[in-house]
């Protein structure tokens, strides 16, 4: 990872603008990388990156907003992109402070990064992300296996999902707040189903999630997905 990033120094002098050199000198990139783990449950990066719950984040810094092909953005963000929003450091900082304030109507259910220095570290790290960037598997889940179309097609029962969700909310907060455990509200149902099946078939690691999903049927996973997609923050 470090070697990859060091190579980028020569390839992409632009990165110095956001203070990457200083960050590495102080060893701060670790901080940003750690903070990024919260993002990584929804956003993929690296050579295999695909759009998941959120768009992939390769080369996010300096990119025009809402510009990843094939991702369905909120109307709110698309409108701001039409007005010329570009993810430079200032804009990203404002967005990450509280996404729902900066883009009212965003579909990103993330309450924000409160500390200014944390946002800075995170942005420094985001600046390193290119299709060539590899991340340790401890931080990024391997790509989740595709789920069979007939399983994705199951229509979930929202009321049953709400009951089943009473297990989830012991850790994943209903409000969308995150304190070390990712928010799972407002996820598009197909992504939700894919992720839960990835835990169920143990291609994603986390013993609690593997345990929880081990007792869920395909219909129950669909019910949860339907419920979580239906929640309005």
């Amino acid at each position: 990872m470090l070697r990859n990033v060091l190579n980028l120094f020569t390839a992409l002098p632009l990165l110095f603008i956001v203070g990457l050199e200083t960050a590495f000198a102080d060893g701060h990139a670790d901080v940003g990388e750690r903070l990024f783990r919260r993002c990584a449950s929804c956003h993929e990066v690296g050579p295999e990156a695909r759009n998941k719950v959120g768009p992939h984040l390769n080369e996010i810094m300096g990119r025009a907003a809402a510009s990843v092909e094939g991702f369905r953005y909120s109307r709110a963000l698309t409108a701001m992109a039409d007005d010329g929003l570009v993810w430079d450091e200032d804009m990203m900082d404002a967005f990450l402070t509280r996404p729902s304030d900066f883009v009212p109507g965003t579909r990103m259910s993330f309450s924000g990064v409160r500390k200014e220095e944390d946002r800075h570290e995170l942005i420094v790290f985001l600046s390193t992300l290119t299709p060539e960037t590899g991340l340790g598997t401890a931080h990024i889940e391997p790509s989740d296996p595709d789920v069979a179309p007939e399983i994705l097609a199951i229509e979930g029962d929202v009321a049953y999902g709400q009951y089943l969700a009473s297990t989830c909310v012991t850790c994943h907060q209903e409000s969308g707040e995150t304190d070390g455990i990712p928010s799972i509200i407002n996820w598009p149902a197909p992504a939700f189903v894919t992720v839960l099946h990835a835990y169920k078939n143990k291609s994603r690691e986390n013993s609690v999630m593997q345990q929880i999903t081990s007792v869920l049927s395909n219909e129950e996973i669909a019910a949860l997905a339907a419920y979580y997609e239906s929640i309005q923050q």
């Binding site: 012991t170 907060q173 995150t178 304190d179 070390g180 455990i181 986390n206």
Partner: peptide, 8 residues
Amino acid sequence: ESVGWYAG
């Protein structure tokens, strides 16, 4: 994760 659970 345990810290997140406590908050949850």
